[in-house]
């Protein structure tokens, strides 16, 4: 094995650069080989099974922001559900059939006329994975993690979100067993929408709290 980590797959580590495409080399890279080797050794020693990994990949693939969006749309249309969700976020999601595979609790943070919530993990990358899937890279990188707690309004402005001075910005830093999900404000003009139509408006970034939900640009993310 070469000791030079850059001799293989060296394009893999370049996704820190926003504008560089992700290149897949022909041969796997050093760390990809390490992943395969660690996994195969653990399987060979009977500590884990190949099926454990396959199954967990399916679990991860089944968790997307569409789940969080469904929770938000239900909360917007069912006040009793919203009450239960704000009381116990995990139980509210479980009520909709969204299981929590990772032993975390969930606090749902409601945006109102007077409070705007923003979530971050300054110590690592805690994120409500059971309801949103895996976090985007920017959430895991230093600028967001370092600055969201000290200058949240500037960070929000970089996402195009300007919060008036009379609205409190409330940053939640997740460090322990608790994860957060922002319940965005329901946009005006959606009175006639069905729950499904509402869910289609709710973006991942709105549930992190960096942008509002708007009527115009729904919802692929």
């Amino acid at each position: 094995m070469s000791s030079d980590p850059h001799s293989h797959g060296h394009g893999h580590s370049h996704y820190h650069d926003a504008h560089e495409a992700i290149v897949s080399d022909d041969a796997p890279g050093y760390y990809e080989i390490m992943e395969t080797a660690v996994r195969e050794l653990l399987i060979a020693k009977g500590l884990i099974t190949a099926n454990d990994i396959r199954h967990q990949i399916e679990v991860l693939d089944s968790r997307t922001p569409a789940l969080g969006a469904a929770v938000v749309a239900r909360a917007w249309t069912d006040p009793a559900f919203k009450g239960r969700l704000l009381e116990n976020g995990r139980a509210g999601c479980e009520e909709m059939g969204i299981s929590f595979y990772d032993d975390t609790q969930l606090i749902v943070l409601e945006n109102t006329e007077s409070v705007h919530n923003l979530i971050v993990c300054t110590l690592c990358s805690c994120y409500p994975r059971p309801v949103l899937g895996l976090p985007p890279d920017w959430y895991k990188l230093k600028p967001y993690r370092a600055r969201a707690v000290i200058e949240p309004r500037k960070v929000l402005a970089e996402f195009g979100t300007i919060i008036p001075d009379d609205v409190e910005v409330r940053v939640s830093d997740s460090t322990a067993v608790i994860r957060y999900l922002v319940l965005p404000r329901r946009p005006a003009g959606t009175e006639g929408c069905t729950e499904e139509q509402l869910a289609a408006l709710v973006t991942r970034d709105a549930m992190i709290g960096v942008i509002p939900v708007t009527l115009n640009d729904g919802a692929a993310q």
Binding site: E32, L134, D137, W138
Partner: peptide, 20 residues
């Protein structure tokens, strides 16, 4: 532990995870 550290602007980068 980088909360509050000096850092540049947030670059909204993301990528589809590679299989590995």
């Amino acid at each position: 532990d980088i909360g509050g550290a000096a850092a540049g602007p947030v670059d909204r980068v993301e990528h589809e995870l590679e299989p590995w």
